[in-house]
Write a protein that binds this DNA or RNA. Structure first.
Lengths: 192, 192
DNA sequence: CGTGACACTTGACATTTGTCAATTTTTTTC
DNA sequence: GAAAAAAATTGACAAATGTCAAGTGTCACG
């Protein structure tokens, strides 16, 4: 499982074998079955998680029991709740597996140690954060400026992988619309 | 004008006089009148900007001429287009002054030099980015899970400063609704 | 002052999206 | 491969938001 992570790192930065050993010494491996939680509302998030295999989502559940998915993540993506991780406050989100998944976890302190010891790693992580900020910003822009249909089209174009692997109802949740509405966007009535 | 910046920095980290001189040597001062642009759609963003005084906004203009405001920023906030800055590609956004403003600009390379020379500064900036990511994430969560009215209420509660200084039509744009709709949320018909 | 620009409100109606319930289709499990 | 479960579709109607046009208010500036 660690091999997938090694490949990922090597694709991004140059790391010595010693450094890999150093990183691996902190790695915590975890397999999750479909529907199992990585994090639950009310927990404090303690890990940065690399997805070696599978598909995850981050979502909240409101008082009416409706789920609101704020993020999907698959192989070679990182997942965590940055807010809970940074503040050590209980999270308002759940993270669970949409497919059987394999994760590599790094505890907060260990992760920071790796960043200190290996500047290239630190830079890579900073870069991911910067890119994540931009992605979120663009999503906000889309949310306030596009119709539901445009948002769906863009989602499919930008993340064809998710569009194929994720149930439609979850995509609707991600887009902020009801499953029925998404279904209607996809199957428009032929006019008159 | 630099004093405001010095105060801001001192509130966040410990910096020597020499370091302040070093930072100041890169600072570019700029005053903007209300409605003047800092950045225009199609430009490449080259600066990280600190707002010493005033109020700015970032927005796009669509084919129908409608503005979509993705961000407000005031005194002691930073503003730029991270995407254009990171990629050196033309920006899709405009940044302009809502009030007469005073800015301190740092060119991309200079900014990186400051970060390298002064680790505490670098850490502060990384922290701001992390916090920005969280803010954006929460805004996305709100966009997909709350009604227009709830979003407005939260905006007023979270940013009372903006709510007072920004015209209502701009707040509507930020929330992703029409000015007429916001007006109606604020002035509900007394029933029957 | 008064007048013009701008911000905000209001009304009537159109469009989009949500709600709830029923049905069909697809997938999973034994 | 049949039964059960989950996912997706559809219809009828309700609620939220948008559109367009006409007002009223506010305020800076000559």
């Amino acid at each position: 499982m660690f091999q997938a992570f090694k490949n990922y790192i090597s694709d991004h930065i140059q790391v010595s074998d010693d450094d890999f050993d150093f990183i691996e010494s902190f790695a915590v491996f975890r397999k999750l079955r479909k529907k199992q939680y990585l994090l639950q509302q009310g927990d404090v998030c303690r890990y940065n998680c690399f997805i070696a295999k599978g598909l995850m989502r981050t979502y909240s559940v409101d008082d009416k029991g409706t789920e609101h998915i704020i993020r999907f993540a698959m192989e070679n993506w990182w997942i965590s709740d940055r807010e809970s991780l940074a503040t050590a406050q209980p999270t308002k989100f759940n993270i669970d597996a949409i497919e059987d998944s394999e994760l590599i976890l790094f505890e907060k302190n260990d992760f920071e140690q790796i960043c200190e010891k290996i500047p290239a790693f630190s830079k890579m992580i900073a870069d991911i954060l910067n890119r994540g900020f931009i992605v979120n910003q663009n999503r906000i822009h889309e949310a306030i400026s596009s119709t539901a249909e445009e948002r769906y089209q863009n989602f499919v174009k930008r993340y064809p992988g998710f569009a194929l692997r994720v149930p439609q109802a979850m995509i609707a949740s991600y887009l902020g619309i009801k499953p029925e509405t998404l279904s209607r966007l996809r199957n428009p009535k032929t006019k008159s």
